[in-house]
Design a protein around this nucleic acid. Structure first.
Lengths: 148, 148
DNA sequence: CGTCATTGCATAGTATCCTATGTTTATACA
DNA sequence: TGTATAAACATAGGATACTATGCAATGACG
């Protein structure tokens, strides 16, 4: 331990990357049952109320770069989760909407995610979870600041 | 907000994935100055004291699957960060060690990471950081449990 | 009205991660 | 000893992320 040349094991960053990887793996396994994947969640969430959004609006909402969203939407279209229709107002753009099949599976997906979050905070009081969320929010604000 | 079909924005998982992605991006940018990448940290850390380890030992330490470690080591070898020598005790295995160039740059890399962790917890007291680490540790234990 | 910057998207290339599978070597045990 | 299991590694292929770049359509402004 003390001879570790980095001594950076007990840092928030270390735990956060480990948890993120495990959560993504677990989420993908559990969501496969309803045909979703964890990377698709921001898109499903944004379109769940029937709205139609462009690729760039989705990228901004999901906080990913545009080519990342392009690939994600291509896979989702291939899997029948979304449709694209040309935007009559802008010939560069298409409007993305959820397929009926995807929308019908959203409640099941939401339940799976709620359970996963409960499992991940097992043994923690509501106050502890609230504290954790508060601290994470402040870290996120800091790293967003670092990004510029 | 209340009309969000998922209502899962204010969950630990949501923040943790966002922070992890931002931290990785920032870490990669800052570490590029010394020729490292964030994914290489577990390997650099494990070998920094001059030890030699096999690919599977490194995979276990870094908590990644074996093919992931194989690819990572291939890139690190290509970039001159590590050497591989055949294991005289086991013809299936090779022993991985850090190059002198990599070892000499470790102190600079460590300083960069310390600073990044300080930046990410800016505005938080030592007690708050300790609380955050404690809560994250418990979440990590939970998700590791979920993984089986 | 024409030029020019901006915006929306596509493509290419790379890095990390995963699962599934195969090959070779080592080991255990009937 | 011979076979079966286990371990170490390689390979293939997919998902999710990034940067860099290019093209076409839009919009702003002299």
């Amino acid at each position: 331990m003390t001879s570790d040349g980095w001594n950076l094991t007990r840092t928030p960053g270390h735990y956060i990357s480990r948890i993120a990887r495990a959560l993504m793996r677990i989420g993908d396994v559990r969501l496969r049952e309803v045909g979703f994947a964890s990377g698709q969640l921001p898109v499903l969430s944004a379109l769940s109320n029937g709205e139609t959004l462009s690729q760039s609006e989705l990228a901004r909402l999901a906080k990913v770069e545009q080519p990342t969203m392009a690939q994600l939407l291509a896979r989702m279209e291939r899997d029948g989760l979304i449709h694209r229709t040309p935007d009559p107002k802008d010939r560069r753009s298409s409007l993305v909407s959820l397929s009926d099949a995807a929308r019908s599976r959203i409640p099941a997906g939401r339940a799976i995610l709620r359970q996963a979050n409960r499992d991940a905070t097992k043994g923690m009081t509501d106050a502890e979870v609230a504290t954790l969320i508060d601290l994470l929010q402040r870290v996120l604000a800091n790293v967003n600041e670092m990004d510029r």
